[in-house]
Simulated scan of single mutants.
Amino acid sequence: MTEAADITPDAARVDRLRAGLKRRYARESRFRLYGLLAIGVAVGFLLLLLGRIIDQGHTAFYAHTVTLPVYMDPARVDRAYPQGTNFEQLVAEQQLVRLGVQDDAQGTLSGEMRGLFSSELKFAAAERVQKQPGLIGQTVMIAAPASDDADLYFKGEISRATPSDQRRLSDQQIAWLDRMKADGHVSAHFNTALFTNGDSTEPELAGVLGAVIGSALMLLVTALIAIPLGVGAALYLEEFAPKNRITDIIEVNINNLAAVPSIIYGLLGLALFINWMHLPRASPLVGGLVLALMALPTIIIATRSSLKAVPPSIREAALAMGASRTQTVFQHTLPLAMP
């Protein structure tokens, strides 16, 4: 009886321990599940965002070109100055004739036809005539981008089913576009102009080249200013500056500046660089200076953390071998702190 009484409390305690372990393992499993669910939700939203961007922006990578035969009427094409010829009106009138449409006295239909072609048409035609004046009096094929509205229609962004008062193309213009496409005058191609053109008031001619170059120049200015200043400040604070109240205040302010919203830096750049220093508003220099101010606290903090990761024995060994403090920092500590 005594042995049975001694075993029973031990067995009950073991059961309680097992139940506690089971509950703990269950909580850990639920925690891992919650973490996986959180990651899955974040990845899902990221994929949704990327999907929306691709769905709405993939059509920018291809465009449509309209190629039409144009008779270079000697009575209307100026041989000496072809740029002064209204090629858009000339092409529109000839295309109406091919479609069997009679324009009115006000030129309303020819105006609608001109709206289907990009303004690049007149420059392409004038360049052809300037290089080959002998084309005057002949019929030549002129290729030009479709206007932004016509391009959107070919891409399916503008539908005929949409009420006419809610779209930018009339039923007549849509019928003309369908006719030109059926006749083989419209072709789709990769939109190289997206990467070779700068900004433009004509959407079909706009590209990202100007923005890419401007961003590259701005980042170059940022790197040239922020990296030397940031690394130099971090070296001084970590290796040379005395540890006193002033350096403590500087460190606290650097940490605080790293958390300042970017809009504050933008307002500072507006007030300091544009309104006071009168730097050009569209210059990459202004953007580079503002980004340099934003990046300085982060660079200083990251550089100081890298310097702290260098073992003190490296510094002590260099100093013991007779190196100066500056030689130790620049020839041993800084190279080892680099990524």
Rank of each mutant, 00 (worst) to 15 (best):
T2H: 14
A5Y: 14
I7E: 15
A11N: 13
A12V: 08
D15I: 13
L21Y: 12
R23T: 15
R24E: 13
A26Y: 08
S29N: 10
R32I: 10
G40T: 09
V43A: 11
L47K: 07
L48A: 14
L50V: 12
G51F: 05
G57L: 03
G57W: 03
F61A: 05
F61S: 05
H64T: 10
L68Y: 01
L68P: 05
D73M: 02
P74F: 01
A75Q: 13
A75F: 03
V77H: 01
A80Q: 14
A80D: 13
T85I: 07
F87K: 00
E93C: 02
L96I: 06
R98V: 12
L99D: 09
L99P: 04
G100L: 10
Q102M: 10
D104K: 08
Q106V: 11
G107V: 07
R114T: 12
L116Y: 04
S119T: 15
L121D: 02
A125G: 09
A125N: 06
R128T: 10
V129H: 07
Q132L: 08
G134N: 10
I136P: 03
Q138R: 15
V140L: 03
M141Y: 12
A143H: 01
A143D: 11
A146Y: 02
S147D: 11
D149F: 03
Y153C: 02
F154P: 04
K155S: 02
G156Q: 03
S159H: 06
T162G: 11
S164D: 13
R167K: 10
S170L: 13
D171M: 01
D171P: 05
Q173K: 11
I174N: 05
L177I: 11
D178G: 03
A182V: 06
D183N: 15
F195N: 12
F195D: 13
T201K: 08
I213N: 00
A216T: 10
I227K: 05
G230D: 04
V231F: 02
G232L: 07
A233P: 01
A234C: 02
L235F: 01
Y236C: 00
E239P: 01
R245F: 09
R245S: 12
I249S: 08
I250W: 01
I250E: 03
E251D: 15
A258W: 04
A258N: 15
I263V: 15
L268T: 13
A271T: 14
F273V: 10
F273W: 09
W276M: 15
H278I: 07
P280A: 14
R281T: 11
L285K: 13
V286Y: 04
L289E: 09
V290D: 07
A292E: 05
A295E: 06
L296W: 00
L296G: 02
P297H: 07
I300W: 00
I301H: 07
A302E: 09
R315W: 02
E316H: 09
L319V: 12
S324H: 04
T326N: 08
H332Q: 10
L334I: 03
P335R: 08
P335T: 09
M338G: 04
M338F: 11
